[in-house]
């Protein structure tokens, strides 16, 4: 039978792709569900990709490498930044003064954009949205969650922040200013959540386990050490 690399769509992305596009179809009886392309936009993706590869505009290897590069970007990177800032006041000061340089100390880069780290306090809670598209600090947090790109979040975050926060299980007293940050230009914003109480003896590595993706977007707060233990 003719080889068709597009039947691989639904599987195979959890392991290294050393074998590129050339492995055979026979995966044995435990083959995971295969999502065959069935919609026009999926056919279009295949068509554009095949054309660009045929015409040597782009190579399959480059696409694969880029996918793997982004598979490696995840909220744990941001969590390391936050934990370090909680642990090391001097680092926090540098991070707040210059986000790009701050995360650079941990080997992270936000090329071409200005990274602005926003400190939450007991009186001020930042919550990030991009009403016009879906701008997100991708180099620090990885690809955004689906809800961040949704009509519901993008429409309502700027007008009903307290209702949206409640949908994330986040209830803040009215004495806290909720500051909704609409990401409309070339800055990318990362929230530095409030350090949870009862963590004064925690190591940087332990602190990082309390930092969730949503707490760095501002739809949530950091995890409580009590709930962890």
């Amino acid at each position: 039978m003719t080889h068709d690399d597009h039947s691989h769509d639904g599987h195979g992305h959890d392991h290294a792709h050393e074998h590129g596009h050339d492995h055979p179809h026979d995966h044995g009886p435990f083959q995971p569900d295969i999502k065959e392309p069935s919609e026009d936009w999926e056919f279009l993706e295949i068509a554009l990709r095949e054309l660009m590869i045929e015409k040597e505009i782009i190579t399959a290897r480059e696409i694969q490498d880029k996918i793997e590069e982004w598979d490696g970007k995840c909220p744990e990177m941001g969590a390391r930044v936050v934990a370090k800032a909680w642990f090391d006041p001097d680092f926090k000061a540098r991070l707040l003064a210059d986000g790009n340089a701050g995360v650079g100390e941990l080997g992270l880069e936000v090329p071409g954009l200005k990274l602005v780290v926003l400190e939450n306090t007991p009186k001020l809670h930042h919550m990030i949205v991009c009403t016009l598209c879906s701008c997100y600090p991708r180099p620090i947090l990885g690809l955004p969650p689906l809800w961040y790109k949704s009509r519901e979040y993008r429409s309502r975050a700027v007008r009903e922040p307290r209702a949206v926060l409640a949908e994330f299980g986040t209830d803040l007293p009215d004495t806290v200013e909720v500051r909704v940050v609409d990401s409309t230009a070339d800055c990318r914003f990362l929230v530095l959540p409030v350090r949870p109480e009862g963590t004064s003896t925690w190591s940087e590595e332990q602190l990082a386990t309390l930092v969730t993706r949503d707490s760095m977007i501002g739809t949530s707060i950091a995890k409580s050490p009590i709930r962890i233990a």
Partner: peptide, 23 residues
């Protein structure tokens, strides 16, 4: 201020604000 933008029709507290990057 949220009230400046929404005139009271929204789910926010009195001191809540929205910030945006404007050219």
């Amino acid at each position: 201020a949220m009230d400046e933008v929404w005139g009271g029709s929204g789910a926010y507290a009195k001191g809540d604000t929205v910030v945006a990057e404007i050219y």
